[in-house]
Design a protein around this nucleic acid. Structure first.
Length: 574
DNA sequence: GCCGTTTTCGGCCCGACTGTTTTCAGTCG
């Protein structure tokens, strides 16, 4: 089985977990974690990276030793060092780190003193009252461990999708805004960076002195448990299981705090290293030279003082944005207003909830110039996929509607299935009557990597193939992505004049940010579509846009930022 | 284990909160 970047990152992370429990040097542990991160955010396969003659140790955080280990993992899927480590430290022990409040030191103590090796062992030890007697532990720790175990069992500590986070954050912000003592209020964290999933929600506020904003926060009706409550920082768990942190900062530090709490952690570390070189210090209160505050009030001031351009939140991942900002070469990333139409929509003809006309009017109301009607093909029987004669019927209706609509065009399209053998689910004579052909996989998700990759590449060779719909097929938190060699897919898209979709549905967000960047780097344009099944799904475009922004895409990199005329000529194949 | 405008050793981001202590270690972000 081929080893991909995520597999390598998983092995490195497991090494870091076990080393940490074993009490290894914390910086050594950090080195493994840094390397895992570098590998998983690499926009090409490690295998391809090596075979193209490049040196792994040129990558940040990877030296001679780790480069060697990564090559070993690539060859065998594991590492003798990891196998040896597992003999010394029970593998399951790393799962205990998922329990809130437990870190490597405590896990190691409980293992050594009580022989705790698993969640079940831990629960038993806590229930038997054995943990409270350990040195450095106590009754409260024991109780919080029991609570933490319940949370892990209910899987309440996982990452939640961005749309759900929106639904949680918005009413909470509205509640906080009602408090007159709060002056400024903003959300930071991965939520602000618009990551596809978030673990918690970070809120930042400034307020009048001597007020009890923290108490007001804890009194929010959805709070299940107050995890911590201090003067400047409070954390609560909401009933939905998500944690919300509130930080109260002085106004003069608001910008520094926004940078700090927006993260990412890696981006912050990189900023601090720049400050250290200048003999300054950066923290959430500002940039300091000794006791003098050099900057802090706004984010712009912070970046400016550090000698770089303002970095939009979506780019703050330490994936090259720091260097680009220092050279003033950041991409001018896409804005939602740049989108001129939606190129993947369904109607009542298949599994949509609205008529073509209703969808078109809703799209026009958003200010769009065009929309493509792309209902399913016959293979998708559960969605009442269209046969060639149904497509003809739909074409006739669209022709009629287009005569009626002013300053708006409905493009005739399909979301045709890519069958197991790489052929398309509608005949060429039907496809050639359409303006746009989106091709997607809805079956045989478990083919091997080479078979799946070949299947897609064969489909792309069909001259009617325009766009690969939801390329990886993943459903966030529900279904793993298809085994695909994305580098080969992107290359095939380039060779065959195809485009790749960023499906904006918040349970897909597919392409990923990293693959968006890969497509851009390899010169393939993407399409940002919603896959709307009803009019109010059209609004999902904002999730796709932020995904594309995270992938460094500019207006010119996106097909549906172009005018209808340009679009037609870009879709046409020789 | 990595890294170098303090460059092959000696650092490695920084601060808040909790629980267990009586000055601080551990965890978290």
């Amino acid at each position: 089985m081929p080893i991909n970047n995520d597999d390598i990152a998983d092995v490195l992370t497991e090494l870091a977990d076990l080393l940490e429990i074993q009490g290894a040097n914390t910086f050594r542990v950090r080195a493994y974690r840094n390397a895992a991160r570098t590998v998983s955010s690499l926009s090409e396969d490690v295998g391809g990276y090596i075979s193209s003659g490049k040196d792994l140790s040129d990558l940040p955080g990877i030296g001679k030793d780790l480069a060697g280990k990564i090559e070993q993992i690539l060859g065998t899927g594991s590492l003798p060092m990891l196998e040896d480590l597992k003999k010394e430290v029970p593998e399951d022990l790393s799962r205990l780190l998922d329990v809130g409040g437990l870190g490597p030191k405590r896990v190691a103590t409980m293992y050594k003193e009580l022989g705790v090796e698993s969640l079940d062992d831990l629960e038993k030890a806590a229930k038997d009252g054995k943990i409270r007697d350990l040195e450095g532990f106590g009754k409260k720790t024991e109780e919080s461990i029991l609570e933490g175990i319940q949370r892990v069992k209910q899987q309440k500590r996982g990452r939640i999708r961005l749309d759900k986070a929106d639904r949680i954050a918005e009413p909470l912000l509205e509640y906080l805004r009602k408090n007159d003592d709060i002056k400024s209020l903003d959300v930071a964290g991965s939520y602000r960076r618009r990551k596809e999933t978030v673990r918690d929600i970070d809120i930042l506020a400034t307020c009048k002195k001597g007020t009890d904003v923290m108490k007001y926060f804890s009194d929010y009706e959805d709070v299940e448990k107050v995890v911590a409550e201090g003067e400047t920082k409070s954390s609560v768990l909401l009933r939905s299981g998500i944690q919300v942190d509130l930080r109260v900062m002085p106004q003069v530090s608001f910008g520094a705090a926004m940078v700090y709490f927006t993260g990412s952690k890696e981006h912050n570390i990189a900023l601090r290293k720049i400050a250290i070189r200048k003999k300054w210090k950066v923290n959430e209160y500002g940039i300091f030279k000794g006791d003098d505050r050099l900057a802090g009030k706004t984010e712009e001031e912070i970046y400016d003082r550090l000698g770089m351009a303002y970095v939009p939140p979506e780019l703050r991942e330490d994936r090259g944005e720091i260097e680009a900002a220092q050279k003033d070469k950041l991409p001018d990333i896409l804005q939602q207003d740049d989108i001129r139409g939606d190129l993947h929509c369904h109607s009542k003809y298949t599994d949509g909830h609205n008529t073509i006309e209703e969808m078109a009017k809703a799209a026009k109301d958003l200010g769009y110039d065009y929309m493509a009607m792309t209902d399913h093909s016959k293979r998708v029987t559960v969605a009442h996929g269209l046969k060639p004669e149904d497509v003809e019927r739909q074409i006739a209706e669209i022709d009629k509607l287009n005569k009626k609509l002013k300053d708006f065009t409905i493009l005739k399209g399909t979301e045709v299935d890519i069958l197991k053998d790489g052929s398309l689910d509608l005949p060429d004579e039907t496809l050639e009557k359409l303006d746009i052909v989106v091709c997607s996989i809805h079956s045989y998700f478990d083919l091997s990597r080479s078979e799946q990759t070949e299947r897609v590449i064969k489909a792309m060779k069909n001259k009617h193939f325009n766009i690969l719909g939801h390329p990886s097929g993943r459903l966030i938190n529900e279904r793993e992505p298809l085994q695909l060699d994305m580098e080969k897919i992107v290359k095939a898209a380039k060779d065959n004049g195809c485009f790749l979709e960023v499906n904006s549905h918040p349970d897909r967000l597919d392409l990923t940010d990293i693959n968006c960047k890969m497509a851009k780097d390899m010169g393939v344009k993407v399409v940002i579509s919603t896959d709307s099944h009803q009019v109010n799904h059209l609004d999902y475009i904002r999730f796709g846009v932020s995904q594309a922004r995270r992938g460094w895409l500019e207006k010119k990199d996106v097909l549906n930022t172009h005018t209808l005329k340009q679009l037609h000529s870009m879709l046409k194949k020789k």
